[in-house]
Amino acid sequence: MEKELNKNCANCPAHNLSHLVKLGIDMTDYDYVVALAGNPNTGKSTVFNNLTGLKQHTGNWPGKTVSRAEGGFIYANKRFKIVDLPGTYSLLSTSTDEEIARDFILFGQPDVTVIVVDATRLERNLNLVLQVLEITDRAVLCLNLIDEAERHGIKIDDRLLSKKLGIPVVPAAAREKIGISELLKMIYEVATGNYVCRPFRVTNDFHKLTHAVEELDKKLQELFPNLNNTRWIALRLLEGDQRIIDAVRSGEIGTIKLSENISA
């Protein structure tokens, strides 16, 4: 009898959106991969724990997560695998943390990258957000610590921010479990392609740089017609980034699939 009841409930759309099944470390047969990126000490691990039901140790200090943590959850009948990346301030320089985070977003091709930012330090955090959006076009911004920002008298126009960045923005206070269900919904929407991101791309007004990038970009597009972040790769080549040069040389870069929402 109880089983019957549950079955009926499962058919109701409201059930999916309000019932999160935390799978802990069970990540078998997942449908989507979610990466969790962000500056250190923005509450990534707290978001991670909220989604997976795991009890990864959290602490109020930067650099707590030193290696990748993985977990899973079921939402709307889809199985998600979620990877908590080490916190970094950028994806540019050469530290191991940044390399792990960047390589996962670039080569691991997560279906959604959730960028957790500290709402009280939005401007600095945006530097990382823009860099992530250079690499992937499926992202959700989690505007965490929004309660703290309010306490400090900081107001953030999240709708305008979403419009500017071209990705969903979810205000949240993960420690208080506020905004988690909205975050889940947006992860789901982006993963399934219901929400089509139009990510903001960094512009620069240094003519010499623009020119050089364009030249490389054109060649890249000829070589790898399926690639969508050629501009970013062009920049890395220009910088002499060995990992990317190797990936271009071996053709690995060409295997990065074009996401469906862009081809549409």
């Binding site: 939005l122 401007e123 945006l126 008298g153 900081i154 107001k155 953030i156 126009d157 999240d158 305008l160 921010l161 500017k164 960045l165 903001f200």
Partner: peptide, 8 residues
């Protein structure tokens, strides 16, 4: 971007 969306 920050200047446009943040108000104190």
């Amino acid at each position: 971007i920050a200047q446009k969306v943040i108000s104190k």
